[in-house]
């Protein structure tokens, strides 16, 4: 909690988390990455941040399939918290499948910035960051 994370990774696949962290650091040593292994923990973190008026990360990479609270559940809870959040948060849905039903369902959430399919490679990440950080990048 001391340093504000720039990027939040929410996924129950620890291997994925490890790989993503490594990839992000290859792109930039400056970005701070935080990870949660399920939606529930991520929601708790964000609600805590808003309560304590701590700055929120700019980007969240959200997995769909997770125990306790999945990606959809996270988005529903996030909706409830949204009025209290001032800063702009980019949430990317990350899934290992390109199922149509998931893509359509994702498009119904205006909180979502994009939909990414695993594995997420360096080039994809670079593009996302370029959009978010613009000239700062």
């Amino acid at each position: 909690m001391n340093t504000k994370p720039n990027i939040l990774l929410v996924d129950d696949d620890e291997l994925y988390l490890y790989i993503m962290e490594k990839t992000i650091h290859q792109l930039s040593k400056e970005l701070v990455v935080s990870t949660f292994t399920d939606g529930e923990q991520a929601v708790e973190y964000i609600s805590k941040c808003t309560e304590e008026k701590v700055e929120l990360p700019e980007v969240i990479f959200l997995d769909i399939n997770m125990p306790f609270l999945d990606g959809w559940g996270f988005l529903n809870e996030f909706k409830k918290l949204k009025p209290k959040i001032i800063s702009n948060i980019n949430i990317y849905m990350v899934s290992s499948s390109m199922r149509d039903s998931d893509v359509i369902r994702a498009s119904n959430f205006e909180e979502l910035t994009g939909y990414v399919v695993k594995p997420v490679d360096k080039v994809q990440l670079a593009e996302i960051f370029k959009k978010i950080y613009q000239e700062n990048w």
Partner: peptide, 21 residues
């Protein structure tokens, strides 16, 4: 189908990434 494509695909892709690394 979903189970296979999702739950099986993610470890496999992870593996390929690690092998690459």
């Amino acid at each position: 189908n979903y189970l296979i494509s999702h739950n099986l695909r993610s470890p496999v892709t992870s593996m390929s990434v690690i092998v690459d690394m």
